[in-house]
């Protein structure tokens, strides 16, 4: 007799836990032919708010880690994903991908994570500066994470799109609330298990499934979200811009095919950084003749 398979329950990822949506609602994820493949949580406004609270709480722990340590954690994400490759490929196929394309998407995702792992402790050196001011001061500018970032995951790619924007955001020390791909949601939740197993502190990344149209407003009007990222969705750009005004969120919109190799780079990290400039007086006494 054939063994009875254990089916996977997809839940949201919030504050380092895997709760169901507080609303108790669900929607069906469908395959290409329209057959149901899973019951997904239909996340609510309250789920978004809880996630933002978790992300704010985790900001100290995540941004306070050394850049080198963050680099190791991102590398660990790649390691764990590599180990679970087949599961992601299966999910992609289930959602309608061809096998060779699914394999490539997962492998590209792993490579992209490794790429950003390497940036964690390097981008600051490239963008920072010691500024030669015309007074006796030591003056330098450096990057700091912008804070809590809301990410509306690219809707045209299940895994690579998410990875392409989430990695630069967290590589720079930000914490993140993700609205998952609505129609291809499986990989995002399985990816949260990868994050969970990789020493990413609970709350640093939170992933909510549900209707984007419903969740955009609570996320982009939230006064404790510092920046927003989204890709495509040009029909929603104006609405998102307007929602973001009240606390002057930094809104970053992209219109890219994340399969392309040139959709990774330093500036995806610095898009979510603030430049801080520090001044301190320099005492200027003596030593004038001892230059040798």
């Amino acid at each position: 007799m054939k063994r009875v398979e254990i089916l996977k329950t997809y839940k949201i990822y919030s504050g380092g836990n895997f709760p169901r949506t507080e609303s108790g609602r669900y929607y069906l994820a469908l395959d290409k032919k329209g057959n149901p493949i899973a019951n997904m949580c239909m996340g609510s406004r309250k789920d978004v708010r809880n996630a933002v609270v978790s992300a704010r709480k985790a900001l100290g722990a995540w941004s306070g880690k050394t850049a080198f340590n963050r680099s190791q954690i991102l590398y660990r994400i790649a390691e764990v994903l590599e180990g679970r490759k087949s599961q992601f490929i299966e999910e992609l196929i289930l959602q309608g991908s061809q096998k060779n394309i699914a394999i490539k998407e997962v492998e590209d995702s792993i490579d992209r994570i490794v790429y950003y792992a390497g940036w964690c402790d390097k981008f600051c050196q490239i963008g920072s500066s010691v500024n030669p001011v015309s007074s006796s001061h030591f003056n330098f500018s450096t990057y700091e994470p912008v804070g809590v970032v809301g990410l509306i995951a690219p809707q045209d790619s299940s895994l690579l799109g998410l990875v392409s924007l989430l990695m630069p955001i967290i590589a720079g020390g930000n914490t993140c609330v993700v609205l998952a791909n609505e129609s291809l949601p499986l990989c995002s939740i399985t990816f949260s298990e990868v994050l969970h197993a990789s020493d990413v502190p609970g709350g640093a990344v939170n992933i909510i499934t549900g209707h984007i149209s419903e969740l955009i407003k609570p996320l982009s009007t939230h006064m404790d979200v510092n920046a927003l990222a989204f890709s495509g969705l040009s029909e929603l750009k104006k609405e998102i811009d307007l929602f973001s005004v009240e606390n002057l969120k930094r809104v970053r919109s992209y219109d890219l095919n994340w399969q392309n190799t040139d959709t990774q780079g330093l500036h995806y990290i610095t898009d979510f950084q603030e430049v801080k400039t520090t001044w301190h007086p320099i005492e200027n006494i003596g030593g004038a003749t001892s230059t040798y």
Partner: peptide, 13 residues
């Protein structure tokens, strides 16, 4: 952030 000074400006800063 100004440390032990305040309101300093410079074109390079």
């Amino acid at each position: 952030v100004w440390a032990n000074t305040y309101n300093k400006f410079d074109p390079a800063s």
